[in-house]
Design a binder for these strands. Sequence first.
DNA 1: GGATCCAACCAATCGCAACCAATCTTATAT
DNA 2: ATATAAGATTGGTTGCGATTGGTTGGATCC
Lengths: 248, 248
Amino acid sequence: MGIMNQFGLIDQPIFAITRYGKPVMIVQNEVQKQLRNFIDKGGYLPGDRLPAERELIESLGVSRTSLRKGLDALEREGTIWRHVGKGTFITSIGESSPAQPPVSSISRQVTPVQMMRARLSLEPAIAREAAANSSAEAVGRIKSCRDKAFEANSWDLYEIQDDALHRAIADATGNVLLLSLFDHLNQVRRAVAWAQVIRATEKPSRDHTSFHEHNVIVNAIEARDPVAAHAAMQAHLRSVSARLFGEI
Amino acid sequence: MGIMNQFGLIDQPIFAITRYGKPVMIVQNEVQKQLRNFIDKGGYLPGDRLPAERELIESLGVSRTSLRKGLDALEREGTIWRHVGKGTFITSIGESSPAQPPVSSISRQVTPVQMMRARLSLEPAIAREAAANSSAEAVGRIKSCRDKAFEANSWDLYEIQDDALHRAIADATGNVLLLSLFDHLNQVRRAVAWAQVIRATEKPSRDHTSFHEHNVIVNAIEARDPVAAHAAMQAHLRSVSARLFGEI
DNA sequence: GGATCCAACCAATCGCAACCAATCTTATAT
DNA sequence: ATATAAGATTGGTTGCGATTGGTTGGATCC
């Protein structure tokens, strides 16, 4: 390939001096013209794939070196787009798709213990932020959730309200990003819980330790005590963890 | 599945230049388009089961590899879900997740300070988990990243290597979910940083405080000292934060 | 001397086929 | 009738060969 400067390939002279002293734009590589023609006549639309280079050199009757020089120009210009192993494509507008792996894929790989450790990594910090930043209305919503969870008369309903409580806390941070992280975690948690442990362990004793723990958390947040909120949430999750696995 | 890079599947052109200024909405996986069409024409309703992959490749006339790539996209998008031994199903409304808002939306709403607080909420905990669980190979990768960051001779390159270092730490937790949370955070961070602060602040002093902080973190992880790792990461982020905002 | 051509090689990707593990179905034994 | 085992089906994974854009070095031509 040619020499690179900071803008790209140094390729053709931009202009030349005729014998009569009049500058003339050279504009294009001969091959470049052929390529443009080939694309137009061939009816290629945005997104379409051009023939492979090794085929093009036969269609156009040029060497691969100069073909690639022409393609380089077209790519620099933005007309085409190339990628090794795939081919050369007519440029089109696509969404930049960041493409996180789907939750189902994650939930398949993550073990219940890892899930618990992830919750322990994130949720106490969220409780701390909530204590530091929550508005009065947010605290009100949290307390409402706590009460509904307490009054829940079925195990399923309790889980729903427990979910809502934890999410209300994340919402109380006033930090969209933290809320988004919590939601992401929670989505995976639902998938994992559904597929694995929870249902296997005993469902009975809607023991009141969780309710007490909830109270400690909510009180710490209402008291705007970040350290206590962090500790309370950590204790709560450790308690849940202990019930599931018998330890951390 | 295709090869993953740190952003996801390598697939179609990420961006393109509209020479005529008119954006042309195109490009999904091609197969993805076919699949969407197939689902619509086939009258599949939420909860219905799609034909097996080995049948679909005949109906659509594509290879199983690329079919699965299309299905991956649809699953990530939430329109289908799959389970080994059962099949592929159209997502039913009940179990459809609340649809995470796209990264772009979040990055628009989140302030740099909130971003920093989110990092402070998650990354120290990740460092702790890394110290507790990292394998020897993982530590090696981390140290390699640290060295590359140290040797970076441009600010841009440093940022890239710094990114890689932090991600290597998240990877060292061995916890797919934590890694996924980190990636989610990082995606938003890139969008926010790009749009707002970072570039506005001074770029000069590649001061060595960050390098020293990196060393402290890496050493703590290598020493398998979770508490120290947590503290070191927290100190590092506080230091970065101080440089950006002048305080926490 | 510089551009061009050619051939060989590299690395990313794709298509294919075989294999794995979870699940469902069916047959068989008690 | 129920329980258990064997087989079939399904999504998930891996390895191989072919294809494709990217790169390099030497031969050739002006």
